[in-house]
């Protein structure tokens, strides 16, 4: 049976993991490689690395880091942040990334989804949607949730599937950072509206939140950052809990 995936996300700035506490078993939580290896050892099913530096000078360092990650990590990983062209994607995949995630660039130039998917396959084309519920509607936002767009979330999800996205990373800005649980309604609606896998993101605060998102929506993966980063919920403990709740999980 296909297992539901638990995906820690690491925000990287200038080659270092942003904030975070030191786990007992690692020396330096600021070192993305050390932190990633710890997550893998704890049972993470995939990893997402998000470059939040987004300066041109930093790109070469970022590619070097992706190279190092690929050498050390034996599970799939996605990289995102500042991807604007097919050439950006080529460099990241060549460095060893399994998938790339595009967000604002997908909204500004939707053909990029098509170009990436045609050139490298839909399996490596993840499109991230930041969505916010405002004035009675779920709409798409860009630039880390700061810039509103006219796009309706469900319609946009269907559009990017048509353009060749192989997976959708759906983050609810209303829930992100609240630790009150995932946005079950929009996650369910989007996941039902498309036939590609949807990763739920934003709002994870306790183990029950993962159970709810897997029981009440058809999302096939759930992503979180701070709760894993600060070791509030150890991945091993979360996976044991979900297994006891009859959720199919890789142990």
């Amino acid at each position: 049976m296909l297992k539901k995936r638990i995906i820690p996300c690491l925000d990287i700035k200038d080659g270092r993991t942003v904030k975070g506490v030191n786990f007992i078993d690692i020396r330096d939580a600021g070192d993305p490689i050390e932190l990633a290896k710890t997550y893998v050892a704890h049972g993470a099913d995939e990893l997402v690395f998000l470059d939040i530096t987004a300066t041109v000078e930093y790109r070469k360092t970022w590619i070097d880091l992706v190279n190092k990650i690929a050498r050390e990590i034996n599970i799939p990983f996605t990289v995102g942040g500042g991807i604007n062209s097919v050439e950006d994607v080529r460099a990241l995949l060549k460095a060893g990334a399994d998938k790339v995630s595009i967000n604002s660039a997908a909204v500004n130039q939707p053909h990029l989804i098509c170009d990436i998917s045609k050139e490298f396959g839909s399996q490596c084309t993840v499109v991230a949607i930041d969505t916010k519920f405002e004035s009675g509607e779920w709409r798409v936002f860009t630039h880390g949730g700061r810039t509103p767009t006219a796009l309706k979330t469900v319609e946009w999800a269907q559009e990017i599937e048509k353009l060749g996205a192989g997976e959708i990373l759906l983050t609810s800005m209303n829930n992100d950072g609240t630790k009150n649980g995932f946005a079950l309604d929009i996650t369910h609606t989007v996941s039902k509206a498309v036939n590609v896998p949807v990763i739920a993101s934003g709002g994870a605060g306790k183990k029950e939140d993962f159970k709810n998102v897997f029981e009440q929506t058809t999302a096939t993966a759930a992503l979180a950052a701070s709760i894993f980063h600060f070791n509030e919920i150890p991945i091993t403990e979360l996976k044991t809990y979900l297994t006891k709740q009859q959720i199919p999980i890789r142990i």
């Binding site: 297992k3 399996q123 036939n195 096939t220 890789r250």
Partner: peptide, 13 residues
């Protein structure tokens, strides 16, 4: 066939 999510993506036994 499109009876479930395609691609088949993730960990399976």
């Amino acid at each position: 066939p499109p009876e479930d999510k395609v691609p088949h993506m993730g960990w399976n036994s």
